[in-house]
Amino acid sequence: MIPFLPVEDGILVTLTPEDLDLLSQLPDFLNSLGDPDNDPAAARLQSPVYREDSNASDEWWRLMVDEFRESRAADRSAFELILEAAAAGTVASMAEAEAFMRVLNESRLALAARLGVEEEGDMERLEEDDRGALEYLASLQQLLVIALMGEELEYEVEP
């Protein structure tokens, strides 16, 4: 089964029970994040915008946090609506598919931060189940990227 297939008016999303089992937990997980001061997952989603001026960063986030909250809540609603219909296959508009993508990515960032992934190589040190969940979400996200871009990229990465 192809989970994300470009069609004329968007992306056809068709998810397996296994996909849905994992994905349906993500909105609650994201909604349960704590305060950035004591939750690394929340902190990752609110990283400093001014690196060398924490006051300016805090002020920026103070001004923008409501807009982020609204935008992320809208993304999660779109995500949940797609999940409700995805067992039988549903066409998501491009905007809805992009919202779906942001929730997938946000979940991976938050989950990885919660598990202590901070640098390259940290992922390899995770417990098998945790790593498996992150890799599963990454592979779904990768398929959605390809569907939205309409092509697979080719480039060489330095070792």
Partner: peptide, 13 residues
């Protein structure tokens, strides 16, 4: 900035 979680193709997108 580089981070260990974001997918390379996703960043391009």
């Amino acid at each position: 900035w580089n981070d260990p979680v974001n997918l390379m193709d996703y960043v391009v997108w």
